[in-house]
Write a protein that binds this DNA or RNA. Structure first.
Lengths: 335, 335
DNA sequence: ATGAAAGCGCTAACAT
DNA sequence: ATGTTAGCGCTTTCAT
């Protein structure tokens, strides 16, 4: 492990010049820079992040805090963020809050505070005002993905609009008896399931249709949950819906399997639409509304970089709406 | 952000004593330790990892290098490792090598070397001797998960045995025409698919059965790949197998769906077994051989901790065999 | 058991 | 454009 002084010696300059040449800060003549770079390469020199971090207060590392890792959506967000960070020369330190409250407390009270990260990306987490304050007091930019956070820059989907769009797609195909498989409002942050349901209800009412109570089923956002809910919905001889809007693709896929197991054809007997564009959606021919989680991760990094290295442009809106797109496949059809 | 000196002042001791009291290294009277701890709590003091890292050379951070994040298996390994590391007061910095070779080079030549991590966990990655050497030269312990790595402590499955066990399960149920959906040997590190296939062939031959060439199909470890391979296998009117052993659960689930789409019953018309115990395996009633990826992540951390804080016990085997377990559900039955 | 002091490897003023 | 110097905040000898 050669240090900066060895590079300096080999290049015939001072350590300060090496630092300047390698970091790009401060002015160095092109010739010197080249010599320094050659020397650094020859020795295989890499700065010590501890030393550099101590001297500058910057670590070139960002913390990503997520509620689960092992769901398609979160994995994709992290993947997008990681690759964007790598391009910028940043590392990504991961905090999975899936476990206990104690774990969450530890992360916020110790891990994030030990000056290991320059900034934090919080995915689908409703941070408490106290948690936000702690980070802001430390001068650490935060960006949230997945829901507005008071006083924090966030990227989020308009879930009401998503619910409306999915429902309108079904209505436009002539469906009137449309069921909804949503989530339990209490289970997830940001009332995402509630908002999607609102969009569904609004679209129904706007079309003069009725969103019957017996056409709503709560599930847990898993394939199995969607399967069970759809069995209930489709098995009931009275008031059987001709279309189902599930609040996630995994639930929608569960619904497709339930329909098949009941001997029904999709979309012949029942149309099904989800939300996500999950990696399995194409395989199942699922019509869905794509959100682009890896891009969300990349966007979060871009927003952070703007805050970390100001100058590009000034902060516009505090909250940025994420794009989404209806992807029509073969699980929905005219009634 | 209070520093160590403010804690020292409040506790009425020197900074050195605070350091000793909080880290547990060196001797401090119980009374002093209590006062220091109280002072630290009151001020919300947390050590600066840069400063501590610079002074000690230890960062309390482990790098985890994986080929993809967004597959069930890898997500679970990382999840297990993350939570085990958190318990030990360590952070986890993630490097996803899914992208280009350039990305991989960057990670090994820069990121891992800038003294940000104390150790490395490499999941399912065949590190080159040069990559291993770089890390060892830096005195960074490495543990590999998923395949023996020359000169590195590793945790790995006996894939030949896995293939044999899966096949023997089918043979014991009376099947003789057993097909195998494997992977492309070139695609994955460690010849995992090849080894599983060897186990299959060995079990067949040991039972006096023949592993026909037309009973093997390569696929890409996805559900869709498994679906397509199974369609070929089951659609062929001559030599149709009565059982299929797929080298992964995702492919096995694809095979189940293919059988259903062909109007066949599982396990009535065809028995199907996979490997993994994927999160969806239970839902599909899939018989499988469970490996326990989250536990693998935890074990990797334990092995690392042994290397990082020697004393517990000395290194036994270089390679540790991972446990696995046949889980019989409803996708396999007597012929 | 505790304190004083040196130093980990780098960066950023300040000089020149 | 480059060198000199003084820290960044902590840990760890070395004294006592």
């Amino acid at each position: 492990m050669p240090g900066i002084h060895e590079v300096a010696r080999l290049a015939g300059v001072s350590a300060a010049t090496v630092s300047r040449a390698l970091s790009g800060r401060g002015s160095v003549s092109p010739a010197t820079r080249a010599r320094v770079q050659a020397a650094a390469n020859e020795l295989g020199y890499v700065v010590s992040s501890s030393a550099s971090g101590l001297a500058t207060g910057r670590t070139r590392n960002v913390g990503v805090v997520i509620p689960f890792l092992n769901r398609w959506f979160y994995g994709a967000v992290v993947e997008g963020a990681e690759s964007a960070l790598l391009e910028q020369g940043y590392d990504l330190t991961l905090y999975n809050l899936g476990g206990s409250d104690e774990e969450r407390r530890l992360v916020f009270e110790h891990f994030l505070l030990r000056k290991r990260v320059d900034a934090v990306i919080a995915v689908s987490l409703e941070l408490t005002p106290d948690e936000v304050k702690r980070l802001i007091d430390l001068d650490k930019p935060i960006v949230g993905v997945g829901g507005p956070l008071p006083g924090v820059r966030t990227l989020s989907l308009d879930d009401v609009e998503l619910g409306r769009l999915a429902t309108e797609h079904l209505i436009a195909l002539g469906h009137t008896e449309i069921a909804h498989i949503g989530g339990d409002a209490l289970e997830m942050d940001f009332h995402l399931p509630t908002n999607r349901r609102h969009g569904y209800v609004e679209a129904m009412e706007a079309a003069g249709l009725h969103a019957h109570d017996h056409h709503f089923h709560a599930a847990d956002f898993t394939m199995e949950g969607g399967y069970r809910a759809a069995k209930q919905l489709l098995g009931n001889p009275v008031g059987r819906p001709s279309a189902i809007f599930a609040a996630s693709d995994e639930m929608a896929i569960g619904a497709i399997l339930a329909a098949k197991d009941l001997g029904m054809h999709v979309p012949g007997d029942v149309s099904i639409i989800g939300i996500d564009d999950h990696e399995l959606a194409e395989f199942f021919g699922l019509t869905t509304i794509a959100q682009f989680p890896d891009m969300q991760g990349r966007m979060a990094v871009e927003v952070l970089m703007d805050e970390l290295h100001p100058g590009h442009r000034e902060a516009e809106e505090l909250n940025i709406d994420l794009p989404f797109e209806l992807v029509v496949r073969s699980s929905t059809a005219r009634r």
